[in-house]
Design a binder for these strands. Structure first.
Lengths: 141, 141
DNA sequence: CGATATTAGTCAGAGAGACTGACGAAATGG
DNA sequence: CCATTTCGTCAGTCTCTCTGACTAATATCG
């Protein structure tokens, strides 16, 4: 190093800090970084624990540990999966939806700061490039 | 979410996994992810613990904990700082330099994969954009 | 100079997060 | 229908990270 990935890491950490601070000051002060990272990968239609674990790149034990906490705090709920009696679908509950909304506020602000710094065109190119890289880098996709 | 930062996070994790695996198979199998992240931010001229902590975005206690391990494993050494008797300069030792060299090998491979996927031009734009964002995102700079 | 404030780093303790291994229950596929 | 795979949990351990308190050295300023 020092490779591109290191500077991406720095940028990510910066966003995470901003998001977490915004969530905390907005009343979601029981969320930890690890919990927020899990929740960030949860899609609208509900996911199984194993799926979520793969998407978040942690073991299913770790995912279960964090989802337990999110559930107890009211951010997500588990529903039976009609297709498989062993599995349950994890979805955002009301509190989770509201917290996601709040997170999106600050994300939009940070991205507009970046856009201001880079210019609209380069920011759009960055966004598109990173998204394209998912094909190579996202175990979930 | 899902914001740009989430996909950057995914890409970073992918690189970290690849680097760590490459280091492990190359004989540096005592390195942990947290240790490698610290070492990645260590510059050639030597840094103080407090500087390194700021750069890596952890507390100085955490930085000290990880540097202790890196030192015991022979990756770094601490030298007295001629400018300040309280401080010491942390530098890469021989083993650390060799490990960094090995890390750079795989980083170059991953970046060439990305370049192949995005094209030379877009990859260069990505690299430049992320580097430019340091002004907004890197507490060390 | 000398009192005060700041800075560099360490010690101690606690909590969170991450892993491996083993397991029961349900589903899948010959 | 039996063997295998998959879903999730339980148990245990280790690593990482933080807060708070502290010592020693340096910087500031009247």
């Amino acid at each position: 190093m020092t490779s591109t990935a290191v500077w991406m890491f720095v940028a990510v950490r910066h966003v995470e800090d901003r998001v977490l601070e915004h969530l905390w000051t907005g009343g979601y002060d029981d969320l930890t970084l690890a919990q927020a990272r899990m929740a960030a990968r949860l899609d609208e239609s509900g996911m199984r624990l194993t799926e979520l674990a793969a998407a978040a790149q942690v073991t299913k034990q770790t995912a279960g540990f964090l989802v337990d906490q999110l559930e107890r705090a009211g951010y997500v709920r588990r529903e039976p999966d009609p297709r498989d009696a062993r599995a349950r679908l994890i979805r955002l509950a009301d509190r989770g939806l509201r917290a996601r909304e709040r997170a999106r506020e600050i994300e939009a602000i940070v991205e507009s700061e970046w856009e201001q710094h880079l210019g609209v065109e380069r920011m759009e190119a960055l966004r598109a490039a990173v998204l394209d890289l998912r094909e190579l880098t996202d175990p979930w996709n």
